[in-house]
Design a protein around this nucleic acid. Structure first.
Lengths: 240, 240
DNA sequence: TCCCCAAACCTGTATGATATGTTTGCGTTG
DNA sequence: CAACGCAAACATATCATACAGGTTTGGGGA
């Protein structure tokens, strides 16, 4: 029985599975694999690391859960593009186990999205500006379909994050979307009248225009105002 | 052959493993499990969901990789406290696959940590203020041991994030630490002279004092200055 | 009552079998 | 000779089973 895994790893007390995870991520790093590139097959890794295919499979599944790699029946595992799936689960878990509350999420969003608004105003392409504007307009147009309004709202914020040209912002903003889908209707309904709801949509439109106009200061300020409004609405509705 | 998993799930096209992950997270949510609470055994879940233990194990491993649950030989799986382990891996993966660069990380950190500095100044306990100060002082005291300086630097920032009383900030700041450990020495060495390095440490001390004094404005400004310096040093060193 | 140990339970890992999806290359056909 | 199609080789998905440790628990003895 030769030592499984071998190759000077941080194996120590850890399980074979976590050692395998380490070996696979190291393989990605050392071979400078890019998104889309294929990893060795389970059988190959199993032989190479001297562990059963079971261990390799559990390692692969773990990496797939974090969206570092992608699995598909019959095909070899491939390296993934950055994705907020794992972080979404993390945040949802925090919320469900009451380690995170909604107010904290909105504080983070406000902090980050003031910055994405600034950066988007500076860096957006024309296509992005158009897309952001179209979401803001759609929110007005579909005023009576609150679910549609919500989806455009979410897409609006995510598109701004994308236009900031910093994938980490995009990642974080995206990670909150699943949770927001639960709380958004609360904020929408809690507004005292349709006037406030129209105001809310108007802010989006102004923001989109500031970004399209390349005015970072205004964009940032409008984003701040937007979140101040939203947080007030949520607090008024008694969301913890 | 009865349909495996059952129970109106979003199972459809997904694999049994991802269905099992869904079932387990739903179990945590519906039973309002808190960190430390035990999950059903693999055998139990295997029977309940009509899938093999293999599938349950792969689901457990996936959740463990994301640090939503904790596994240990002989013991039942338990729900985890929030932890930045998964997000660390995510960020490292992004960096290694060149989907994220160091400058982007520093922009995110600057954005977030200006806020944690503000919040820490408002919310820190006396014990936290003392801890933050002690790390800043240790950076001065151990000036010649750059590794020690780095560790105190990292701990300093993480402690501020903790004192912000928003676990999401703490999560994000923590997630960057592993990557920072690689780039930090570059910034340290790239400073033209020890005078700049002393300056760098001095900023930390001033910042710690602003937080201890409960001065959010100053704290935030010092944090901004700190990052502007750091980013300049990294750029000077040619870090992409 | 307290302590210790064995049985029951649980997870970690390995093996092999089967079903099914994907890729590849060869041979046939037009 | 090119294009098509199909079978073999390869890969993953899932299952069943086995066994080696680690953990918990309850009962029996001091």
């Amino acid at each position: 029985m030769t030592a499984a895994i071998e190759r000077g790893k941080p194996m120590d007390g850890a399980s074979l599975v976590s050692a395998a995870i380490g070996a696979i991520t190291r393989h990605i790093r050392e071979n400078e694999l890019a998104p889309g590139d294929k990893l060795p097959s389970e059988a190959t890794l199993s032989k190479e690391l001297n562990v059963s295919r079971t261990v390799i499979r559990e390692a692969f599944q773990s990496l797939a859960a974090m969206r570092l790699i992608e699995l598909a029946a019959g095909k070899r595992a491939t390296v993934c593009h950055l994705d907020h799936g794992a972080m979404s689960l993390l945040i949802e878990h925090g919320v469900h186990t009451e380690q995170i509350n909604v107010q904290q999420i909105y504080d983070v969003r406000r902090t980050i999205e003031m910055r994405t608004a600034t950066l988007a105003a500076l860096r957006r392409t024309d296509a992005e500006a158009k897309l952001i504007l179209s979401h803001a307009k759609a929110m007005k147009a579909e005023f009576n379909n609150s679910e549609a309004v919500m989806e455009h709202d979410l897409a609006f914020h995510l598109e701004i994050a994308k236009a900031s040209r910093n994938p980490i912002f995009w990642l974080i903003v995206g990670a909150f979307q699943d949770v927001i889908r639960h709380t958004w209707p609360v904020g929408w309904k809690s507004r005292p009248s349709d006037a406030e709801r129209h105001d809310h949509n108007k802010t989006h439109l102004d923001l989109a225009e500031a970004i399209a106009a390349g005015d970072p200061q205004t964009a940032s300020q409008l984003m701040a105002k937007h979140f101040d409004d939203s947080i007030k609405a949520l607090l008024a509705a008694g969301v913890s």
